[in-house]
């Protein structure tokens, strides 16, 4: 009732012109508030992908920039020449090096994602079940590393995993091993690096899912004779599923294209597609090939995102 009188008062006091002005300004303002971020993202996020796609269809050339033009035209002689080069893609699928790199990236990212989930789950569960005061402290302990440099956190593991690093020194001095373990520059180090740097991305969505969970469900299950393990898999895990999916997505997708971690912690035989793209671009200076690698990586990654989105949509609809 009060809101109605309020708006009636506004309408009554303003002349038709004033109302028209407000109306106009509102629409113009509304338009620009939408248009500015949209235009920025269109130019600097969306169009770049089209450019990448375009250049993936050109050939390398010794020129500045180092690729050939797709479209050649000369209006005086009246010709337009469109030249699409699928060679980069053919090469990508012929040379097992690239396919191996894609598969090994997916494998490394998938294993790391599962490991991250296994480590993050108890942390998130403990935080969600703790007292509100300690909860805030524990949450910020999880987030704090996220605020420090990613590069330096990866670097910190180099000092830990080296042949004469802290872990080996400790194990040697306690006599558990008598030869230093080779850990740095192995796939193992890459797993550790990914798990370590992406852990907060997994803990936070898990926490927010577990926090909403009604604990009386577990009590009811226990009263009805359910074993803790059974209740965990039949109640806790399904309730946490949205968090599990979101967390896994936030870890898996960037991990597939990861460059810094394999470059610093991985060995020369650790094949990851982000590193291949980097070398293709910075070492071989083959921009079209780097673009083709990026396009295929994008296709590989877009599919899981779509599938996950669809499954979530279905769950909400039911």
């Amino acid at each position: 009732m009060s809101t109605q009188t309020g708006s009636a008062w506004v309408e009554g006091s303003g002349s038709r012109l004033a109302k028209y002005n407000i109306f106009k300004r509102l629409n113009w303002g509304r338009f620009s508030v939408i248009a500015v971020p949209m235009l920025w993202l269109a130019v600097f996020f969306f169009i770049p992908f089209l450019v990448v796609f375009k250049i993936s269809l050109s050939e390398t050339a010794i020129a500045v920039p180092p690729y050939t033009a797709l479209l050649d035209w000369n209006l005086d002689e009246a010709f337009i020449n469109l030249k699409l080069n699928l060679g980069n893609y053919l090469f990508l699928f012929e040379d097992s090096f690239y396919i191996d790199a894609y598969l090994s990236s997916i494998k490394i990212a998938a294993i790391s994602t599962v490991l991250t989930l296994l480590i993050a789950f108890p942390i998130a569960y403990m935080i969600a079940r703790s007292k509100p005061t300690t909860r805030a402290l524990l949450l910020s302990l999880v987030i704090l590393p996220f605020w420090t440099s990613f590069l330096l956190r990866v670097y910190a593991w180099m000092g830990f995993l080296k042949k004469n690093g802290l872990i080996n020194e400790f194990l040697l001095s306690t006599g558990i091993i008598d030869q230093p373990l080779i850990m740095l520059q192995t796939d193992f180090a890459v797993y550790i690096g990914i798990v370590y740097t992406y852990l907060p991305f997994m803990v936070l969505p898990l926490y927010s899912a577990l926090e909403k969970m009604d604990i009386t469900l577990l009590e009811a299950a226990e009263d009805l004779g359910s074993k803790p393990a059974t209740s965990f898999f039949l109640i806790t895990v399904p309730m946490a599923m949205p968090g599990i999916i979101a967390g896994c997505m936030l870890v898996f997708i960037p991990a597939v294209g990861e460059f810094v971690i394999p470059a610093l912690l991985g060995g020369s035989d650790t094949l990851m597609i982000g590193r291949v793209l980097w070398d293709e671009f910075f070492l071989n200076r083959d921009w079209p090939m780097a673009s083709a690698v990026a396009v295929v990586m994008l296709i590989v990654l877009v599919l899981p995102i779509m599938m996950i989105r669809n499954s979530q949509g279905k769950e909400e609809a039911v």
Binding site: V43, F44, I47, P48, F49, V51, V52, I55, M249, L250, I253, P254, V256, G257, E258, F259, G274, L277, W278, F281, W287, A290, S291, A294, M297, L298, L301, I305
Partner: peptide, 14 residues
Amino acid sequence: VMPEVITGLSLLLL
């Protein structure tokens, strides 16, 4: 979630 190598390369080419 976009891998940084893709964002970097695509912006450079743009």
